[in-house]
Write a protein that binds this DNA or RNA. Sequence first.
DNA 1: TGTACATCAGTGAACGCGCGTTCACTGATGTAC
DNA 2: TGTACATCAGTGAACGCGCGTTCACTGATGTAC
Lengths: 205, 205
Amino acid sequence: MAKRGYHHGNLRQALVDAALDLIEEKGPTGFTLSEAAKNAGVTPAAVYRHFEGREDLIVEAARQGHEIFAELMEYAYNGGKPSALEAFEATGRAYLAFARKHPGHYMAMFESGISANKNPELTAAAQRSSAILERAAEALSEHIPPDKRPPSSMFSAHIWAMSHGVVELFARGTPGSRSPFPPEDLLEAGIGIYLRGLGLIPPDK
Amino acid sequence: MAKRGYHHGNLRQALVDAALDLIEEKGPTGFTLSEAAKNAGVTPAAVYRHFEGREDLIVEAARQGHEIFAELMEYAYNGGKPSALEAFEATGRAYLAFARKHPGHYMAMFESGISANKNPELTAAAQRSSAILERAAEALSEHIPPDKRPPSSMFSAHIWAMSHGVVELFARGTPGSRSPFPPEDLLEAGIGIYLRGLGLIPPDK
DNA sequence: TGTACATCAGTGAACGCGCGTTCACTGATGTAC
DNA sequence: TGTACATCAGTGAACGCGCGTTCACTGATGTAC
């Protein structure tokens, strides 16, 4: 329940929301401060009451994305229940679900070319979300014999990379690129094969 | 040996090269027709003697990228020699090598938001390069018992996705994102684990 | 070989546009008394 | 409750800018005779 503003009533968030819609529609670079302001029913100059400028608005959109993302991942991980393996798989699914459900956020986070270390709050939010996947990987890695255990940060990097690749190449409405499979199935199968390669799933299905 | 132009001497290619440099430097959307013209030592209007406009220039850059990419993949695949497995792994490495060596092309191809099906020549070039990875996957898939063999187009999609994800997340000079491992090692390890999951590599290293 | 002509790659000026940003302002809202 | 005042979110006009694109042109190059 944010306190109502003098005229608009929480313009700050309305601008972020408008920006997210535009980013989803036109990509992070097609996004325009002026248009976001217009869509929020406000003059471009009004934006400067709440943000330093165009980039700052994108940064805030990305930051909120990381918050939501972290929450979703945390929820999917569920403290490693019912098993490290299942929790890990759930985070993979959560990744894709997030990209699907919050395309504007996703684009602001991963496709806008923001320098993540420019804004400390953004950095913190990004680290928080990636930490969850790393924790899941670490818990999982304990089920592998230590002598043949690759570093756990490598798992999370692999899963992150495959998830991101699936999103970018097959889950996006890029015109002309037809997905051979539903992205969810594709990712789930890929992660399954990968975990089998780690010896975490019995070779026989 | 292109015939020399009247004044400039193969301005068309010079413009493509300038565009590639700019795309590499500033991203596909930071790229500007006017600046590309300037860097080629020519007036912006001259561009219209060779291209329909800004987008057409990007499309040509992407098309050339797909040609190079296809050649590289073809070379790496090497007709499936010495083995289907090794040839497949080589194409994975070639993917990353291409992204590293030709970042401008890579960005034009995969990050410019071009509608691939707008230009038939671009579509053809893109299909040619992706066909090679699919062929490699198909050859590999014959080494898996048919009853537990997933569709081969799924392999190539998985490898493609992981490769792309590694490039985007860990091989790019995105400021602030530190790569935990050399991208080459990361990808090679990931593909190795994946192929082990398919039963194509013995579980014991 | 020399001359007249045709071609057409690149010029330079101009255009309309929307952008991000600034600034002095205004007037609705909240507050003190 | 009513009045005077302070606050400050949003306005509207203006700016300089570089963009993509157009157009009539020019002058170097190639070609026919």
